[in-house]
Design a protein around this nucleic acid. Structure first.
Length: 419
RNA sequence: GGAGGAGUGGCUGAGUGGUUGAAGGCGCCGCUCUCGAAAAGCGGUAGGCGUGCAAGCGCCUCGUGGGUUCAAAUCCCACCUCCUCCGCCA
């Protein structure tokens, strides 16, 4: 959420950012409602001031009949105005919550993911001197994946990881947590469900248009789509000390997404599913630190996939593909032989104060004032996309799959062979 | 799930329906003292919104949301969370 005062004072900038982000929102209408709201609020405040004055005049003894009558009258007037302002408020909030964050000047202006800018390529697209299989075929021949049974038990979009692939998930968790803890991140295993305020505060509105979120019937709870929700909300309503910033968290959770209608060749198998495990980074920082920290996150991601020897490229995400909360974003895309193309494996964003405003996370600055922190989030590892990349890129002519050497201490064997 | 108790500022902790936005303590900031520090003393110290060049003024906030009242931290209702005991359980 943006600050209404900021929108008032920087209307042009906000309008332009929304346009660049390809998000339709009527800023003019918002400002009109804002004015109506303030006008009505001033009236109410004045009436309340009268009421307070009356109450303190009557203090100590019994109020006389005239005072009581006046008080009753004021009470009714206030109630009436409050009902009126409520209507305006609903419309106002609805628009305000749709106003997107600004974007970094270096985020390329563009319409959609076609306009994302390739920053660099690390490694080379894998070439095979045999006919490569996709991860579904490998999963079947090596007995690593079972979609059929999962479909019966849980439905379309679910899966069982079996044998070495089940072990691989935990090996990768260990590998990535160990690395991040060494870099000063505090490790978490978070709840997989969160309340409405946490969902909304981080920008995952359960009742939003692009409904991705599973809600628990009859409860103010949803299944989280990412640990960003639980990690970001961990410090909600807190005032942090400047000397403690940046605060770096890394959390493991399961992630749940409806992915309604997301079928097609490109999203087969493990690529797009309703549930997966993920290790997520989350940073709370002072405003002046967040630009550098995003670069740092991107470097950490590069280090992880570099060590796994998975070929990948880095994208600087364009304005139209940033989404509402992100000010700047980098994606890493791994080479996926199934797609014969790159496919997203990580994403890291600087959300500046867009999340912290709603989550109410502040810090006390050197000048004694409390200010909103900046928040950043980034995928350390998603345990669907990475197994795809490993299976498909590291398959051998004999049908076996080699496991990256850096996982040696976490895996019983560095090769998966047919049973 | 059942029975009791409790939620007050950065923390702790008082609070009789009416000078309580809130005592005291701790912490933090400033000053005095000191070569410096500690200790001690003095002073300051919640956030949000509106208005104003500013000083200021007004409104809101005592877990959350409603209600009663001329007036609510204080009374009533619902919900949330925590504590104790019982039950159940990995």
């Amino acid at each position: 959420m943006l600050d209404i005062k900021f929108i008032r004072e920087n209307t042009k900038l906000v309008k332009e950012a929304a346009k660049n982000k390809n998000i339709k929102v009527d800023i003019g209408e918002l400002l009109k409602l804002d004015e109506e709201k303030r006008e009505a609020q001033t009236k109410i405040d004045n009436l309340r001031a009268q009421r307070n004055e009356l109450a303190s005049a009557a203090k100590g003894g019994k109020p006389i009949a005239k005072q009581i009558a006046k008080g009753k009258n004021l009470k009714e007037e206030i109630a009436k105005l409050e009902r009126e302002i409520e209507n305006v408020n609903v419309k106002y909030t609805e628009i305000l919550e749709r106003v997107p964050n600004l974007h970094h000047p270096d985020a390329p202006i563009g319409k959609d993911d076609n306009d994302n800018k390739e920053v660099e390529i690390v490694g080379k697209p894998t070439k095979f001197n045999f006919e490569p299989k996709n991860h579904l075929e490998l999963g079947k021949s090596l007995d690593l994946l079972d979609f059929e049974t999962a479909a019966e038990v849980s439905g379309n979009g679910f899966y069982y990881l079996k044998n070495e692939l089940a072990l691989l998930e935990f090996a990768l968790v260990q590998f990535v947590l160990e690395k991040l803890v060494k870099k000063g991140f505090i490790p978490f295993s978070t709840p997989d469900l969160a309340r409405g305020f946490a969902m909304k505060g981080t920008g995952y509105n359960p009742r939003g248009n692009e409904d991705q979120i599973y809600e628990i019937k009859g409860e103010d709870l949803s299944l989280i789509a990412t640990a960003e929700i639980t990690l970001g909300s961990y410090l909600a309503n807190k005032i942090l000390a400047k000397k403690d910033l940046p605060i770096k968290y890394v959390g493991f959770s399961h992630c749940f997404r409806k992915e309604g209608g997301a079928y097609g060749k490109e999203s087969r198998g493990l690529y797009r599913v309703h549930q997966f495990s993920k290790v997520e980074m989350f940073i709370f920082s002072a405003p002046e630190q967040s630009d550098d920290l995003l670069e740092e996150m991107k470097e950490i991601e590069k280090e992880i996939y570099g060590e796994l020897k998975i070929p990948f490229r880095v994208l600087n995400i364009c304005t139209g593909d940033l989404g509402a909360p992100a000010y700047r974003k980098y994606d890493l895309e791994a080479w996926l032989p199934m797609k014969n193309n790159w496919g997203e494996i990580t994403s890291c964003s600087n959300c500046t104060d867009f999340q912290s405003r709603r989550l109410n996370i502040k810090y006390k600055d050197n000048d004694g004032k409390t200010k909103l922190v900046h928040t950043l989030n980034g995928t350390a590892m998603a345990f669907t996309r990475v197994p795809i990349a490993i299976l498909e890129n590291f398959q051998q002519a004999d049908g076996s799959v080699k496991i990256p050497k850096v996982l040696k201490k976490y895996m019983p064997s560095l090769v998966i062979t047919p049973k």
